[in-house]
Write a protein that binds this DNA or RNA. Structure first.
Lengths: 165, 165
DNA sequence: ATATGTGCAAAGATTTTGCGACCCT
DNA sequence: AGGGTCGCAAAATCTTTGCACATAT
């Protein structure tokens, strides 16, 4: 119920250490550390791409042929709810459109996921420290400024008015 | 078939001028400028949010009660293919996952839509010229570096080798 | 032992498509 | 007139859920 503490994995740990981190976080969150979940998490650790649920399902099936797609979806949701894994974009699920087809950026509320336009000239200074990897032809940066929108931030602000001590 | 010339709308034009821009681009692209398409485009122009196909369908139905959802989807695709409108994110459609739950960025190929991780410390210097709008609590920037990946850039490079004249 | 997870299959949601009638140029 | 579009409905995808049995702690 409470917002999960967002313990972050260390990208430079080796796979077995990451698996241990995963089991520890499951215990902390009161989640049974099932075989299916461990296989799923390991498959995600070993993925160099950014797999879809279906792709993840195929990989898990190599170890657990009887696993069901429903279980994969359920556990993905559990993992996300507990901050154990990340999703590449907050905007999956349904196509979102805009008449403005010129480059610009967005403010995104992490709570209600509403989006607000940010004119191109409002974002400055983006650069890659070491440039793009060899072979990648960089065209432009698209920036999302994540945070809480005014409506979603209100409850937090109200804490200044209601004494909780 | 050829990559559509990406004529961009001017965000500061008024609505009727934008409608004219839309009709001109339809003619240029050889697209019949049907009543449905004009109503759809106007609905997108007037939207302050970033509507989904379903939301757009509801708005178009106010003007054309007989319109079908299939038409809305078909025309959305046509508009996108011709660069007449934008989509908020390249990653709709299916959830994409990653074990790395610590903040980082992505390289995204606009052709094959493959993604590659970009460690957080590779991206520098992002800032908002005038800061976030009042009430928005900014937490972090998420950057997508868009371009062509090595694999998709190859055909372009080859044009230097095969004489086409 | 008990609460939770799992497999299966059906339901729900989102998006695409085939077809005949109709509209834009 | 002719090619593309529209409305309709069925199909294809993607995701969630109810239930009976199995598993983790």
């Amino acid at each position: 119920m409470h917002p999960a503490r967002q313990f972050r994995i260390q990208p430079d740990m080796d796979v077995e250490r990451k698996m241990q981190w995963f089991r520890d976080r499951c215990v902390e969150a009161g989640l049974p550390c099932t075989h299916q979940r461990q296989v799923m998490y390991r498959a995600l650790l070993e993925a160099v791409d950014h797999p879809s649920p279906e792709m993840l399902y195929e990989r898990v099936k190599r170890d657990i042929p009887s696993v069901s797609l429903g279980t994969v979806y359920r556990n993905i949701k559990t993992f996300l709810d507990n901050g154990l894994i990340g999703e590449v974009s907050l905007h999956h699920g349904s196509l979102r459109l805009e008449a403005n087809n010129s480059p610009h950026h967005h403010l995104v509320c992490r709570s209600c996921r509403r989006m607000f336009d940010l004119p191109a000239d409002q974002v400055e200074g983006v650069r890659l420290r070491e440039g793009p990897p060899r072979g990648f032809q960089l065209e432009r940066f698209v920036v999302e400024a994540h945070g809480l929108c005014a409506a979603c931030a209100v409850p937090k602000a109200r804490r200044n008015h209601s004494k909780t001590t």
